[in-house]
């Protein structure tokens, strides 16, 4: 039983690697466009770092948070986002649209499980800029020791799991509400926005919201807490949060899939 599960896991890792290669080859057909999007996203994230640099130059401490902490927050969020949607680009904006437009059939015809297969179907070029930015800013600005570096690598994967899970959850709204792409984008963008500001700014009911309806707490607050404390307990809480968000997404997807009705739309995989 365990051997079978392990084989299946390895098999999906191989599928992931194959899709990564195919998606990257497709993107690199237009090298100029790909590299310009990666560079632009790197610069975009850099603009926010400049904002915080200017802010902390004038106001050195923000409720116990220093510039280094905010840089860690940005690093882990962007790295997680980049890994998530660099590998599973269909988990981003495409998800809700594909369900609403009846494009899931193509993925159902394959012997693989629908969800992971569909998620792996494309890459978002700019996400690679995010991933690169996260790692560069953490290793270049925060200058971690070996333990911190290892913790960051693990946490960036944990955050990627949160992003994928939340992408599935928000995108699955289309099963229940029809074309929910705007609502899905809105929900996700608001969560990301909250996730990029220090949690010390919020308290009371807002903090409850940030660990439930708007899962910014799982995207960045718990991971940064783990980085600050270097505690295994905090890391385990962050991992548990990520698994919870992913599980919520998977349940919403497969429940929704039961309501999915096939149309007579003829479409091709992009």
């Amino acid at each position: 039983m365990e051997a079978k599960m392990f084989r299946s896991f390895v098999d999906y890792l191989r599928l992931c690697a194959s899709y990564l290669r195919i998606n990257m080859n497709a993107q690199l057909e237009y090298r100029g466009a790909f590299y310009s999007q990666v560079a632009a996203m790197f610069i975009n994230d850099g603009a926010w770092v400049v904002f915080w640099l200017l802010f902390f130059t004038r106001f050195p401490v923000l409720h116990g948070w220093s510039l280094k902490d905010v840089m860690s927050l940005w690093a882990v969020t962007t790295a997680g986002f980049g890994i998530a949607f660099g590998l599973m680009g269909n988990g981003h904006r495409r998800f809700a649209v594909a369900i609403a437009q009846g494009e899931l059939e193509i993925w159902m015809l394959h012997p693989r499980a629908v969800l992971p297969h569909f998620l792996l179907g494309s890459t978002i070029p700019s996400a690679w800029g995010d991933a690169a930015f996260g790692y560069v800013i953490y290793f270049g600005f925060v200058k971690p020791n070996v333990q911190q570096a290892a913790m960051f690598v693990v946490l960036s994967i944990v955050v990627a799991v949160v992003f994928v899970g939340f992408g599935i959850l928000t995108g699955s709204l289309s099963f229940y509400l029809g074309n929910a792409s705007t609502l899905s984008d809105q929900w996700r963008d608001i969560s990301i926005t909250f996730a990029t500001y220090p949690p010390t700014l919020f308290d009371g009911k807002v903090k409850v919201l940030l660990f439930t309806v708007i899962p910014a707490g799982f995207i960045s607050y718990l991971p940064v807490q783990s980085l600050r404390s270097m505690s295994i307990v905090d890391l385990l809480i962050a991992v548990a949060g990520a698994i919870g968000v992913l599980a919520a997404g998977v349940v919403a997807f497969y429940f929704g899939l039961r309501r999915y009705e096939s149309g007579n739309l003829i479409s091709m995989r992009e």
Binding site: Y30, R31, G32, A33, S36, Q37, A39, A40, M41, I43, N44, A47, V50, F51, S126
Partner: peptide
Amino acid sequence: WLESTSGLALIYTRTVMM
């Protein structure tokens, strides 16, 4: 002249913002 201007547009909006 460019394959895609979306990157340049993003940089422009961030420049305006900052």
